[in-house]
Amino acid sequence: MRKALIVIQAEQISDAKIEHLDTLIQKHYREHVGSEKLLTLWNTLPKGQAFTDYEDSRSSLITMECPNNFPQESRVAMLTSLERDWRTVTGQNPHQVMLALVEETLFADVFNSNKQRLSPIGRLCLVLKVFSSFVRARLTGSPISFNPNL
């Protein structure tokens, strides 16, 4: 299973729009990357916890995993299509949306470095947080979304 880590700002994108965006990500991923299931993890940062260009951030950061040696032409097609649809839904300007399609070896480095900096208790807390969000998402039929503060 591939993963996508998405960071958005609290109170900027409604739950309904997040569900719509999640559907669009899955659609474009199937079209441009492959049929492998993509697990999307939505991190909603509380106000005042993100900054871009010195100011409180209004940016969305979407980092998705793809196979190694992924063709650049397909990557550009994927990012271009998703960026266009994302901004249609959110109304953000082009400089408020950063997307990356990262090959699996480097993506694993990113994912693991976030775990490896934690103590054993910290890792357990992180697993429990993601797991509880996963259960809630399954029960409500919504994307996996959580506040990244533990």
Partner: peptide
């Protein structure tokens, strides 16, 4: 350029000993 630079903060993360 500074407009490229994003900084995000998260708390409540028990880090490795000494950090």
């Amino acid at each position: 350029p500074p407009e490229f630079v994003n900084v995000i903060f998260m708390h409540g993360h028990p880090l490795k000993k000494g950090k």
